[in-house]
């Protein structure tokens, strides 16, 4: 029985050793795998013909069943939608000196009976030092995963607070990796960037719950649009950012449909940052 507790440093060290272990085994690429390269040359015409046939069949199927396709909400549709519209859906909305960045929703995996919808967004504040960030959300499953600090001496910021729905959150970390993702070139050229926050909302729990209700025929949602609507629409986060000079900025970040095309087929949640 171990006498000591595994802390973060020890876990890091153990994982590092574990994942860098030398393999006692040597795998060799099998000859039949290598032959694939040669085989491919002869297969190309055959496979091209197959693709054309499948494509033609699919087009014929679609033409005959477009009306039904969009009203029969089966698993296939959701997966297809997830792979297309939801994955890597990054929309940038600039608002200076605060910039909201990097929103993404993705990963519906119905076969696995899991739904993962993470919504990430960064808040980039340029030109001022932040002393406190307080935010509240009408969405109870909104959580902070990370807050990243850039070009920022964390040791002098002991009093900095991150406050979520009235509860002070101390889970923040210094992480320079996020620089390239979160800082817009235009902003970083024009302002000395003092702080980048990276908040991560986890909608997994709620999305799973709603999807389960939907799939079980509990008729709360008439269409998938309604389902997505209930997950994403009207969710907001209010942020109050206090700067070192005592000034305060208030921002509301909302999720909403792209009104230009409200069809779920091209469903695009967007972030808006507006002064209250």
């Amino acid at each position: 029985m171990r006498k000591f507790e595994i802390n973060d440093e020890k876990l890091d060290e153990m994982l590092s050793n574990y994942c860098k272990k030398s393999s006692p085994y040597t795998f060799r690429v099998k000859e039949k795998v290598k032959r694939e390269r040669i085989k491919k040359r002869f297969q190309i015409k055959y496979s091209t013909a197959c693709y054309i046939l499948i494509f033609a069949f699919f087009i014929g199927l679609c033409v005959n069943s477009i009306p039904n396709f969009f009203t029969s909400y089966n698993d296939f549709f959701i997966i297809a939608n997830a792979q297309g519209a939801f994955e890597e859906n990054k929309i940038l909305t600039a608002y200076q000196p605060v910039k909201v960045d990097s929103l993404s929703c993705y990963d519906y995996d119905i076969n696995d009976k899991s739904v993962e919808v993470d919504i990430n967004f960064g808040v980039c504040c340029a030109g001022k030092h932040i002393s406190k960030v307080t935010y509240t959300s009408n969405y109870s499953y909104f959580i902070i995963n990370y807050v990243s600090v850039e070009n920022f001496d964390i040791s002098s910021r002991e009093k900095m607070e991150f406050n979520h729905n009235g509860v002070v959150c101390n889970r923040y970390s210094v992480d320079n990796d996020s620089q390239s993702v979160l800082i817009d070139n235009e902003i970083s050229d024009n302002y000395p960037v003092s702080l980048v926050c990276f908040l991560d909302a986890d909608y997994n729990f709620e999305a799973q719950r709603l999807l389960k209700k939907y799939k079980n025929g509990e008729d709360r949602f008439d269409t998938l649009n309604d389902l997505y609507d209930s997950i994403f629409r009207n969710v907001y986060v209010d942020m109050e950012i206090t700067f070192d000079d005592g000034s305060v900025d208030n921002h509301r970040i909302e999720l909403a449909y792209d009104e230009k095309d409200s069809s779920y087929k091209t469903f695009k949640p967007v972030v808006t940052a507006t002064l209250k």
């Binding site: 890597e88 993404s104 993470d118 990430n120 995963n145 990796d177 991560d200």
Partner: peptide, 12 residues
């Protein structure tokens, strides 16, 4: 091919 925030949250 996933957002960096998701990598962080999964790692965490």
């Amino acid at each position: 091919k996933i957002p960096i925030g998701t990598v962080k949250s999964r790692l965490n």
